[in-house]
Design a binder for these strands. Structure first.
Lengths: 126, 126
DNA sequence: CCGAATCCACAACGATACTG
DNA sequence: CAGTATCGTTGTGGATTCGG
């Protein structure tokens, strides 16, 4: 469970260890850069610079930060080749590929409801 | 498409209007509070205060901000009843329910790989 | 080529107070 | 009860620089 389902007064102690871990993971992974990185890697093996080129608008810093985070959580694997110049490649691990299904779903959802959402925005902004 | 798939030098003009809209939606929706709100509402009809209680750790401000954003994008519907005290209820719209499938997938993923991730973290932190 | 560290501008966020 | 506004603090994220 990621959201609370009980109804009493709430405090931190209400979260079990597993719940708080789940929330932590959620906070890490449920962000746009992480999703875009996972989507970009997909089944490929990509270098840092390739990822940087593929993800429009991501900064060097954001890319490294999110790659570290994803590596720490075991979603991507980082392979370093001690060549000159150095070569670093990223691939999705099994958990990473599993999550990719979810991210793909969201991409499809975005495409499907694009017009719908645009219309809703115009209505709201008026 | 949400990520770029071409390989030339990149600039903002490379994004078509639909792409930039897709990215905007992605930036809005792919964040942890939005996901937790969607997950909490689910098939229910919840009041502001009920959402506040159900989502551990969300502030009044974050909840209103994200609810406005989701309403603007047409994912939640807001119903105001002019009673005393006022009563405001939130439900998912059709696009919102469609996205919920994705969010559910992520919740399930989190549960499934919880141990896996925890182990990966310990390895990484060492 | 990749990544870490520094600096700093500005956005995010929480707390608080006020309105209908 | 729900929402807006303001304020002060924290944190995010970009630009840059240096190092392996």
């Amino acid at each position: 469970m990621v959201t609370k389902q009980v109804d009493g007064p709430l405090n931190d102690a209400d979260l079990t260890r597993a719940d708080s871990l789940a929330r932590e993971i959620f906070s890490d992974v449920a962000n746009k850069w992480a999703f875009l990185i996972i989507e970009s890697i997909g089944e490929h093996t990509l270098r840092f610079s390739e990822l940087r080129n593929e993800i429009e608008g991501i900064s060097h810093k954001m890319l490294t930060q999110n790659l570290r985070m994803l590596e720490r959580n075991g979603l991507v694997e980082r392979s370093v080749y001690a060549t000159v110049p150095p070569r670093v490649e990223y691939t999705l691990t099994e958990p990473g590929r599993a999550l990719r299904a979810t991210v793909d779903g969201m991409c499809a959802w975005t495409q499907q409801y694009l017009g719908h959402i645009e219309a809703a925005r115009h209505r709201f902004d008026a």
